[in-house]
Design a protein around this nucleic acid. Structure first.
Lengths: 110, 110
DNA sequence: GAATCATTCAACCTCTCGGTTGACAATCGC
DNA sequence: GCGATTGTCAACCGAGAGGTTGAATGATTC
């Protein structure tokens, strides 16, 4: 269950255009057109990216007249971060070991 | 630069088989065959996944006789986590707002 | 009601992905 | 040296990604 959510979340985050859109949305709500503009991309192209983000639950869409207003929905990111944080202890141990190595080299150098 | 690294890192993490392999490697070094086994997958298939992880810098490979010994190299994960952590304040605000909403509902219920 | 604007949909293209199979290369045990 | 083991490589396959274009839909404006 959670596994599959991670699939779609990480998949959505793997594209720089989509990460850019998220960054843009962090500054406030945007229309599809506004999201497309910085990337010199067709409307339809942007629309597809937005759909991917939507299906990953990373954004919410609200229709306002003829424009769609997109807003950030960061909750799934939290899940991804929790997953990544599992590894924190692992890599911190690694860095400690590296540090120790450096120290012992210094000792030898004396 | 960092952007492209995030691409390959997130891309590598988007596949459950590869996340499984990483989890397995957290328990200790493994050969390609040992990594393939839980997934009932051909050697060649596993070999490809390992290659993806290797190019993302998430693992290291050491040849020992005819077997390749794979070990975890978690550093790029740290970068991804840092990226995700940017959003932390954003979703925590959201949750606060939700909490506030719940509280105000309680008040009304009185 | 016609023209315009914001967006989606459908069709298409090219590339990449995840997987397989079969042939090859290196190493090990005997 | 021979056969088994461990792995890679190349070729292929079907499905999906990321992009385009052109037509269709639904408000908005005049």
């Amino acid at each position: 269950m959670v596994e599959q959510r991670l699939d779609t979340t990480f998949q959505a985050l793997a594209d720089p255009t989509r990460r850019g859109m998220l960054a843009n949305l962090a500054l406030g709500e945007k229309s599809i057109g506004e999201l497309a503009e910085p990337f010199e991309m067709s409307f339809a192209g942007a629309s597809k990216h937005v759909k991917v983000l939507e299906q990953a639950g990373l954004i919410a869409r609200r229709k306002q007249g003829r424009t769609h207003v997109i807003s950030l929905e960061a909750r799934p990111l939290e899940e991804a971060e929790r997953w990544l944080r599992q590894w924190e202890k692992f890599w911190s141990v690694r860095l400690d070991r590296l540090q120790a190595l450096i120290e012992s080299d210094k000792e030898e150098g004396k």
